[in-house]
Amino acid sequence: MPKPYPSEFRDEVVRVARNREFGVTIEQIAKDFGVRPMTLQKWLPRADIDAGTKPGQSRTEAAEIRELRKRIRLLEQENEVLRRAAAYLSQANLPGKGSSPASGRCPHRS
Score class of each variant (00 low, 15 high):
1 M>V: 01
2 P>H: 05
3 K>N: 10
8 E>D: 05
9 F>C: 00
9 F>H: 00
10 R>C: 01
10 R>F: 01
11 D>T: 05
11 D>V: 03
12 E>D: 10
13 V>K: 02
14 V>A: 02
15 R>Y: 13
15 R>P: 03
19 N>K: 10
19 N>A: 10
19 N>W: 07
21 E>D: 14
22 F>D: 14
24 V>M: 11
25 T>H: 02
27 E>C: 00
29 I>S: 00
29 I>N: 00
31 K>T: 09
31 K>L: 09
31 K>R: 11
31 K>M: 05
32 D>V: 01
32 D>G: 02
33 F>S: 05
34 G>Q: 08
35 V>S: 04
35 V>G: 03
37 P>W: 04
40 L>V: 01
43 W>Y: 05
44 L>A: 04
44 L>P: 13
45 P>D: 11
45 P>L: 05
45 P>W: 09
47 A>W: 04
47 A>M: 03
47 A>F: 05
48 D>T: 03
50 D>F: 03
50 D>N: 09
51 A>E: 09
52 G>E: 06
53 T>H: 07
54 K>I: 01
55 P>V: 06
56 G>Q: 08
58 S>R: 02
62 A>G: 08
63 A>W: 06
64 E>K: 15
64 E>M: 14
64 E>A: 15
65 I>W: 14
65 I>R: 15
66 R>M: 08
67 E>S: 14
68 L>I: 07
70 K>P: 02
70 K>G: 02
72 I>Y: 06
73 R>L: 03
74 L>F: 11
77 Q>F: 10
77 Q>K: 11
78 E>I: 04
82 L>Y: 12
84 R>M: 13
86 A>D: 07
86 A>H: 08
87 A>E: 15
89 L>A: 07
90 S>H: 14
91 Q>A: 13
92 A>N: 11
93 N>W: 12
97 K>P: 06
97 K>F: 14
98 G>L: 06
99 S>W: 12
100 S>L: 15
101 P>Y: 15
104 G>E: 10
104 G>I: 08
104 G>W: 11
105 R>F: 08
105 R>H: 13
106 C>Y: 13
107 P>C: 07
109 R>Q: 11
110 S>D: 12
110 S>G: 12
